[in-house]
Amino acid sequence: MRLTVNGRAHEIESAPLTPLLAVLREELTITSPKAGCQQGGCGACTVLVDGKPVRSCLVPVAAVNGAEVTTLEGLGTPERLAPVQAAFHDQYGSQCGFCTPGVLMATHALLERTPKPSRDEIEEALAGHVCRCTGYVKILASVEAAANNGSVS
């Protein structure tokens, strides 16, 4: 099997039913997708598969053979943050950071399909992402900032 992850092609040796999450973390040592609940209920493992956000813990790797996968590592770098990363940084949208990679991938996908989302649309898009630190006020402000070139209404 083959996967292209963040622009780089990989031959995959894991068993076909291995969750994509385990392939990313354990075979490829790409660790931004987090293994939270591992049953699709927390959002921390969210990555993009061919541009669409999915729960990588729910996807058997054989089902996405040949796909392009984007993780948080593929959005930006510490020197050159992607707009969503910069907005979460500026607005203190991350505390312990465990949910943050999944939230950022979902936010990135939201802004790709809806560049100026309403508050309701943001809440709907992130409804499946559980944060146990801060509550959601800072996270929602960060998404609004990302949609408005850094400023919060």
Binding site: P19, Q38, Q39, G40, C57, L58, V59, P60, A63
Partner: peptide
């Protein structure tokens, strides 16, 4: 396995 949302958690666990 269709989308995996039911079966994969069972396999993972």
């Amino acid at each position: 396995v269709g989308g995996g949302t039911i079966v994969m958690p069972e396999i993972s666990a």
